[in-house]
């Protein structure tokens, strides 16, 4: 009833002029105020859009499929097949190489151990670059899993090491060389600090990372006493002709931007029974790798018969599976 009594009034107002704000027509809007409001709104939205211009540079957003993917340990074999197919597709699209992506599982009765002979290492850094080539690390910016420390004779203090040495020829007199990479600790601090369980230790001793689960908080990088972990600040850049197509999910498949990576003992090789790339390229045979649970393996023999000097920084209680030793 009240509505009908008001209607003549509101009709009169529609002609214009009552937009000055006075009067009881709270929901009415005249042309001028409509134009003003809408033009301001359009300008505001346009300004907002323009101010978000830096987002144009955002690449590598990832697909919904990847976003909704479950944690590695919760993937069923069928899920894993789909995931591997997706990775194959993505790699093929980006690098024009058909990769062979697999999810290698840990073998029973195997625990990997690395032994490095400090008497033999000459500091040639071949291992560093063989690792980069094998594991599809970014070339620019550089990501390298191995750092070769040049150390003065008479000290085992890694603080005295220099990894930027630019010697013409190696080895130099008065120095020895100590390559450092992920030590695959029995008691890994990086695993403890991960807030999302994106990194964990497998039964064969390899600490792995699910790159699709990592949130890039870099806590693990800070927790590692060996400077073993690397963060992808940018999307990794790898020349198309240098992609290693033999890939594994937890290993050397191309990483997205914003995740952490590290040495995984060449999971795509070692879980297929082969030696890691850094070991095969070593010109002096300073690097030895094998299954510590096999009493006849090379590493068992070294730990039994050689002067094994350290687990690096053994006082921090990480108990590495990477041993440094000397001949004689």
């Amino acid at each position: 009833m009240s509505c009908s009594s008001n209607s003549p009034n509101s009709g009169g107002c529609g002609g214009g002029g009552c937009g000055s704000g006075s009067g009881g027509h709270e929901h009415g809007m005249d042309r001028r105020s409509f134009l003003r409001t809408s033009s301001v709104a359009v300008a505001g939205v346009a300004a907002l859009a323009a101010s978000l211009a830096p987002l144009r540079d955002l690449t590598d957003v990832g697909t919904a499929e990847q976003f909704f993917q479950k944690h590695y340990k919760k993937l069923t074999p069928e899920d894993m097949e789909k995931v591997l197919a997706r990775i194959t597709r993505e790699v093929e699209k980006q690098y024009e190489v058909r990769p062979h992506v697999r999810d290698y599982k840990a073998m029973d009765g195997v625990e990997f151990v690395y032994a490095l002979n400090l008497t033999r290492c000459i500091g040639c850094r071949k291992c560093v670059h063989a690792c980069v080539a094998e594991n599809n690390q970014s070339r620019n910016p550089e990501i390298q899993y191995i750092r070769v420390l040049k150390m003065p004779h008479g000290s085992m203090d890694p603080e005295k090491g220099d990894h930027n040495y630019t010697s013409e020829l190696v080895p130099e007199k008065g120095s020895f060389y100590m390559p450092v990479q992920c030590q695959q600790c029995v008691n890994p601090p990086c695993v403890k600090v991960c807030p999302v369980k994106a990194t964990w230790q497998e039964s064969d001793g390899i600490t792995v990372i699910d790159y699709d689960w990592c949130i890039g908080c870099r806590y693990c990088e800070a927790a590692c006493p060996y400077f073993a972990r690397r963060f992808n600040f940018t999307k990794p850049s790898i020349p198309k002709d240098q992609i290693n197509p033999n890939m594994s999910y937890l290993g050397n498949r191309p990483r997205p931007q914003g995740v952490v990576e590290k040495c995984h003992f060449c999971i795509q090789r070692t879980r297929a029974g082969k030696y890691p790339a850094c070991m095969e390229v070593c010109p002096t045979g300073a690097r030895k790798f094998g299954n510590i649970l096999d009493p006849d393996s090379e590493v068992s023999h070294i730990l039994k018969t050689k002067r094994v000097f350290i687990q690096l920084k053994e006082e921090v209680g990480t108990s590495p599976r990477f041993f440094y030793y000397f001949d004689v």
Partner: peptide, 16 residues
């Protein structure tokens, strides 16, 4: 004993 010199191929001789 396999601990001097270079080795390549397979650590697991049942696989290669």
């Amino acid at each position: 004993a396999g601990i001097h010199g270079r080795t390549s191929g397979f650590w697991n001789v049942s696989m290669g």
